[in-house]
Design a protein around this nucleic acid. Structure first.
Lengths: 339, 339
DNA sequence: AGTTGACGCGCAAACGTTTGCGCAATAAAG
DNA sequence: CTTTATTGCGCAAACGTTTGCGCGTCAACT
């Protein structure tokens, strides 16, 4: 690896001059700058970011922690985050937490050790105190979910409202047996979404059948398993709403498996608007659409701003909620009369 | 940030002792090791990886360069890569190249600057000499595609065979007007896939209609645009085969848009076996399935091995090709007779 | 002619960690 | 009792970069 010293030696100047020349410092003659740059180029110099990080106390790394990169929802988030970072000269360090607080802590620790400039995180349901402690030192933004102990700006959606509207839509179509796939109570988003579901019933003087609520880990496998049982009941639900990106996948899997090639006589509502949902059963899956691009962009912009601020600015924690919208395709219809 | 010196001062020992104790060095009394570890834990010590990288000349970072993280195909790859790295104590730096050689070079430069331990790359079609030069210094593996100037192990599939089989399947169903969506000639995979397509015709004493071959940038938008024109022709193709992950998306978009809610009377063959393809039109999309998990795992394992080797081992460049398989669902049928 | 200022550059220290070498003390061997 | 080996630890240098300070030179002032 060619260093700044090599260039200095080659040119008969001091290392300081080389640094300053490369940085475009005034107080260095234009001629010297030209010579240094040329030599650097010719020798294939690449600045050692480790040395730079050590000296400056901060690196050009931004951490992104997501539960599952394979989920199209988080993949989109990663794409936007990567764009933001790369444009601003940062590199993105990707950590997949699998919704495990322990993995999360381990990775946050590594990020802190790397003196990363900032962190974007979709927190797990059980963020540890150690994680919060570690994160309190660096600019941090949380996406989608909001962890209790974490003092960091958050960017998500109005979860209660999202499920209030979605459930209401199904109720107004005439459904009464509406299954809900939702994350467990450790997730603030899951709680809010559950409340929206219940409130939609309440607003119409109704009450949901609690047996139809499947709360569990936010994974496709969990959702499809819970649903399989529900679909095999003597009186299956007439509609299903999935209150999570992974759970939507689980829902589609279970429904596909249960109905095979016969047309499913159950109404479906997904969560998040993945491109693939347009292809569901030829008619498309109706979903609760989240402005995920907007969210990720807002979070990225905020993070970059936090990184730039002179550190002194009192970090009044902001919490931004965007609105969801219903994207209606063919998968939700009035309930069919059953014999 | 609490450093090793802080711990040393607190305990009245030297920094060297602390390092060695934390590393579990023998030659340090068990008692001292215990005291140091306890103190480190209690003070919340996190090793500065920048300093460590500087001293050791290599960091715990592994770079992953993919064209598009939003594509489910590469997302899966990223997931496996992340698993491999994280298990081995490395962090994954994600770079999205958008198939742009310039972006690719910039990111590789940054990775080299970070003294990353290794690189996994899906090369663009026009890998620059500078990129090759930079990459020649670090352990590197390439996935899916193979760049010309890059001396690095590669893990991909037998592309020609894949399209030979797929095209043959459609031909044997009776199709003759088979559109092909494929990447442009800068990609070695695209060339091989195109050859497979042509050879399948040739093996049956036939010849493809070159007008039905859409070669372009491997992006969904490009594929859907090219296909739109084809579908509007007076005599549209009776079957379409997409020879790329992004192009498959483009194909589905174009077909959805063209046929609306009417059943598409064109046979379809996708590329890569994304979960969402099971939901296509209720019947599922038949595809050319790649063992992407196996590929990514093999590449990851190889990279870790390369990193561990004493650097001296003559790097005889290996090139591993896995076999694809056809996953038959309902989207490919014998051609319908048209008036 | 002496003072002041600007300009162009070098010196050296610092960031936190690791590691070869060496020193002292104790144990084992002669 | 001396020699040798072993154990436990400290010293100091090194990795590459950045930056405050200072020094010399030259021109423009008073």
């Amino acid at each position: 690896m060619v260093t700044i010293k090599d260039i200095a030696r080659e040119l008969g100047v001091s290392p300081s001059t080389v640094t300053r020349a490369l940085a475009g410092n005034t107080r260095i003659s234009a001629e010297t700058i030209r010579r240094v740059r040329e030599q650097a180029e010719q020798m294939g110099y690449v600045a050692d970011s480790a040395a730079r990080a050590m000296r400056s106390g901060t690196s050009a790394l931004i951490g992104l922690l997501v539960p599952d990169i394979q989920n199209s929802f988080y993949a989109t988030m990663a794409r936007i985050a990567a764009q933001c970072c790369q444009r601003a000269g940062y590199q993105l360090v990707l950590s997949v937490t699998e919704d495990d607080p322990e993995i999360e802590e381990r990775h946050v620790r590594a990020l802190i050790g790397a003196r990363c400039a900032g962190v974007m995180v979709v927190p797990t349901g059980g963020v540890t105190p150690a994680t919060c402690q570690l994160l309190s030192g660096v600019p941090t933004v949380q996406l989608i979910r909001r962890a209790e102990g974490l003092r960091a700006d958050s960017f998500g959606v109005n979860d209660r409202q999202a499920l209030f509207a979605a459930t209401g839509y199904l109720l107004d179509l005439g459904h009464r047996c509406i299954a809900l796939l939702v994350g467990d109570k450790t997730l603030d988003t899951a709680r809010a979404r559950f409340n929206g579901y219940v409130d939609a019933f309440a607003a119409r003087g109704l009450q949901p059948d609690i047996d139809l609520v499947c709360a569990g880990a936010p994974r496709a496998s969990q959702g499809s398993e819970a649903l399989r049982a529900l679909l095999s009941r003597r009186v299956p639900p007439t509609a299903i709403v999935a209150a999570g990106a992974a759970l939507t996948e689980g829902m589609l899997d279970a429904v596909s498996a249960h109905y095979g090639s016969t047309y499913p006589d159950v109404s479906l509502l997904g969560f998040g608007d993945t491109a693939a949902f347009r292809w569901w059963q030829g008619e498309g899956l109706s979903t609760i659409a989240l402005p995920i691009t907007t969210i990720a962009e807002a979070a990225g912009a905020r993070l970059l701003a936090l990184i730039k601020t002179p550190r002194a600015a009192a970090p009044s924690v902001e919490s931004v909620s965007f609105d969801t919208s219903m994207v209606l395709r063919g998968s939700a219809r009035p309930p069919v009369e059953r014999s």
